[in-house]
């Protein structure tokens, strides 16, 4: 697993209070990991802070699963 994927996973475990085994690439924040809309906003903010990127709202809407977050960040992280 890439360094980015490891960090993403750690943030999700911390913010959503879920078990490591649940954080699979296909897992959806809202459907599988119990996030509500505010949790999702918080996750995006944490990604922005950790990876020093700015994720525009229209792109943030397309980040719904762990895998989507990892690929977006692998592409955009500085």
């Amino acid at each position: 697993m890439s360094e980015i994927a490891e960090k993403v996973k750690a943030i999700i475990i911390d913010k959503l209070g879920v078990e490591e085994s649940e954080v699979t690439p296909e897992a959806s924040f809202t459907n599988d990991l119990g996030a509500d809309s505010l949790d999702t906003v918080e996750l995006i903010m944490e990604f922005e802070k950790e990876f020093n990127v700015s994720i525009p709202d229209d792109q943030a809407e397309n980040i719904a699963t762990v895998g989507q977050a990892v690929s977006y960040l692998e592409e955009h992280a500085k």
């Binding site: 505010l38 906003v41 918080e42 903010m45 922005e48 802070k49």
Partner: peptide, 9 residues
Amino acid sequence: PRFNPFFIP
């Protein structure tokens, strides 16, 4: 501005 979404609530 990087305010936490839980700030107000």
